[in-house]
Amino acid sequence: MIGIVDYGMGNLRSVESAFEAIDQKTTVIRDPRELAEVQAIILPGVGAFGDGMRNLRESGFVEILNEEVLEKEKPYLGICLGLQFLAEKSLEQGEHDGLGWITGTVRRIDPESAQYRVPHIGWNDLRIEIEEPIFKNLEDGPIFYFVHSYYMDVSPEDSSVIAATCWHGQKIVAAVQRGNIYGVQFHPEKSQRSGLCLLRNFVDQALKD
């Protein structure tokens, strides 16, 4: 069973529907203690970083995520905000602490020219930096739907976690991976066939052992 964390940020519906489409059972988790029961954790989310982290902290998710994902090495997939939370901090509307699992800072996209509009909305090609199993056999190729104004600026000492990037007037970290921890800036649940393939790959990987 895969657990989808509900911490009051945005719609989980599309993530649930996507897993349903690949015949994978999921359960929505509102009580952090239930994280112990699932085999893998999905943390979706759109909205502001500060609100999101506050909700996670106040509902008691942060400690238990640290326990389940960092200590027990349970597979984790963060989507959009779920990727950004991995950073040490975000500069979106002030300065907010993240989970700090990856050394880096979330910053506003600052493209090299005005022809690149922010928010970065739409389908973009990934440049795969590490041939991770999650990128295997993507039906329509490595092209995914993005919608965000901030990105994770991974510190040079942690650059080995960068699994994929894309270009939007600057290089944008599109996916990270370290051991059991995966994060994607794009929305696989909204990226049609390639998105469903990626989720399938994550599930296969996560439930393998």
Binding site: G10, N11, R13, E189, K190, L196
Partner: peptide
Amino acid sequence: FVPLTVGGWVTSTDEMRKLLRLGAD
């Protein structure tokens, strides 16, 4: 499984929340 934008008769943040909960992106 592509993004969904929903509009018409949206006059409050409650209404917006309702549409997002129904699955609008």
